[in-house]
């Protein structure tokens, strides 16, 4: 127990460079594996939260452009969504990394872009914005006609009409699908350090450490279940957080018509 507390203080923040510099080399204890993989989760959460947060606003912009009358707004947004939804995230990471690497030769401004904390975040941000944009677009088109007509009848126009009627309804309809998107975005963050982006000084994410242990011990049956445990907990936290928002978005509706969060599998990118 003593020993484990020592391990936690040594490796608990290892993934962001605080604590022991060297990773354990042999005789891995269960405590070391749990601590280091947990430490790696910091990166998964960092990528997930920031990409979701910025992606949400960008997606709102994308969906407005996609639903716009003007070709000049509609086409770029359609292409952006197709580009990021139609190609594998894995290839996007590789491409972005090598692109930033060659831009680095042009100007030192691009230096931080080749590091995972910024470069990978940008890719994840664009990717989730595209997926979310498509979800929002579907929701925008299924807003009940009556709601919009009622808004018109009350004299709502322009920005107030969007802010108070269209946008909340769109979010309400899109929310279950958006919850799935959030879950799979967090899953997708595990790809970062398996593409070009280097784990500087072995500061990696949860899967990076799980893979490290599996490689060293040649025993996948310990580190991967630990990783799975962390992700199941993370998934449950996301579901309860999004469920809270979902209840708030649906609070004006009669009890039985409220849409429950229904989780469906299968979005890998």
């Amino acid at each position: 127990m003593e020993e484990c507390l020592q391990t936690i203080s040594d490796y608990g923040l290892r993934s962001i460079g605080i604590g022991q510099r060297l990773l354990p080399k042999e005789d891995f204890t269960l405590c070391q594996q749990i601590t280091l993989i947990g430490s790696g989760m910091i990166w998964n959460i960092y990528f997930g939260i920031l990409a979701l947060l910025f992606g949400f606003f960008f997606a709102t912009g994308l969906v407005l452009a996609k639903a716009a009358q003007s070709r000049w707004l509609r086409k770029p947004s359609e292409w952006f969504i197709f580009l990021f939804r139609g190609s594998p995230l894995f290839i996007q990471f590789f491409f972005a990394y090598f692109l930033f690497l060659s831009l680095k030769g042009v100007s030192p401004i691009f230096d931080p872009f080749t590091a995972a904390w910024l470069g990978a975040l940008i890719v994840l941000f664009c990717n989730t914005a595209a997926y979310t944009g498509e979800i929002f677009y579907g929701a925008l088109r299924s807003i009940p006609k009556g709601d919009v007509e009622a808004a018109d009848a009350y004299g709502f126009t322009g920005w107030p009409r969007f802010k108070r009627i269209i946008w909340p309804t769109m979010l309400r309809l899109a929310w279950p699908a958006y919850t799935n998107e959030a879950i799979f975005l967090f899953h997708a963050t595990t790809l970062v350090f398996f593409t070009g982006f280097p784990a500087w000084q072995q500061r990696g994410d949860a899967l990076y450490y799980a893979n490290y242990f599996a490689d060293k011990t040649f025993n996948p049956f310990v580190p991967y279940p630990i990783l799975a445990g962390y992700f199941i907990i993370l998934t449950l936290i996301i579901i309860s957080g999004f469920g809270f928002v979902n209840r708030r978005l649906n609070r004006h509706l009669p009890q039985e018509t409220r849409s429950k969060l229904k989780l469906r599998a299968n979005i890998i990118r």
């Binding site: 899953h187 790809l191 799980a210 040649f218 996948p220 991967y224 992700f231 299968n266």
Partner: peptide, 23 residues
């Protein structure tokens, strides 16, 4: 079988199964 694969990143499954199946 259906629900376990959902909750965990698929890439972790790929890395896991390739060794686990072999062993």
């Amino acid at each position: 079988y259906i629900s376990v694969v959902r909750g965990v990143p698929d890439i972790a499954f790929f890395l896991f199964f390739i060794i686990a199946l072999d062993q």
